[in-house]
Design a protein around this nucleic acid. Sequence first.
DNA 1: ACCGATTTACTTGACAGCATGAAATATTCA
DNA 2: TGAATATTTCATGCTGTCAAGTAAATCGGT
Lengths: 143, 143
Amino acid sequence: MATRTDSLTLEVVELIGAVVARYHEEYDRAAAEHSLTGAQARVLGLLSLEPLPMRKIALRLKCEPSNVTGIIDRLETRGLVERRPDPADRRVKLAAATEEGRRTARELRDALDFAREPLAGLSDAERTVLRDLLRRMLGEETP
Amino acid sequence: MATRTDSLTLEVVELIGAVVARYHEEYDRAAAEHSLTGAQARVLGLLSLEPLPMRKIALRLKCEPSNVTGIIDRLETRGLVERRPDPADRRVKLAAATEEGRRTARELRDALDFAREPLAGLSDAERTVLRDLLRRMLGEETP
DNA sequence: ACCGATTTACTTGACAGCATGAAATATTCA
DNA sequence: TGAATATTTCATGCTGTCAAGTAAATCGGT
């Protein structure tokens, strides 16, 4: 298709690349302020909502379960996360954020300027348009 | 500010997170098809446009120069990149894509479906709107 | 114009984190 | 009992940082 060579599409792709870079910068910067890596911050964010079995963390991160072991190890060492047995299945271990972990996750969310700064210049109407375009891009038809 | 708690903004931020995840999936998948890591693919893409001194690669990647040494080492081992002296300054080494490197970079770009698939559902008018919104988000006022 | 001190470019080595894959253990389920 | 599942451990490779080292350019004072 002509899609690839068309200059408008190329520019949009380039802009998306810039957004991706910016997103990571902000995310890693916010994480580093709490001496966390990006991966640790991401997992802590997940666990601040609900405890999860290791297996499901791996699914969300799209990585091997053996990798999650190490990430949870580091968070656990720092007292941000704890492992609990799952009463329903003694094979699984639930990773849960501790009180301190939840607090850190909250501070992390608050420190993430990405939500505020770049979007601040857009009106509500523009954000709605952007939301709908992104939804369509991602193939989730507007419900 | 109310910006953070407003649900429209939150949804847009979440969608951007999804775009970021999708972007990486596609990028890493395309790179893996050529047995390259994401970082290697990124550097090869840069060098396929023009040779660059190690220092500038580090600037573009926002990482330490010592890190670039290893990435270029691996690409050089595979014959995709070569180091050349800079005639103007004997301290600097220019990394340049070889013929095979440029070919791989081209195949990589062609295999990157991100440009086609998610944008394919959008009309030209919609892409223009998206482009302008992204530009404003990134703070580059439309020239 | 020269020379020593500083700065710049790159590399090396040590170390931590993320990621994979294979093998081991414990538990569940058919 | 035997197959499947959840987690961990181990070996390995890549990315990233930082500190130290080498080589080359540049600057300032004479």
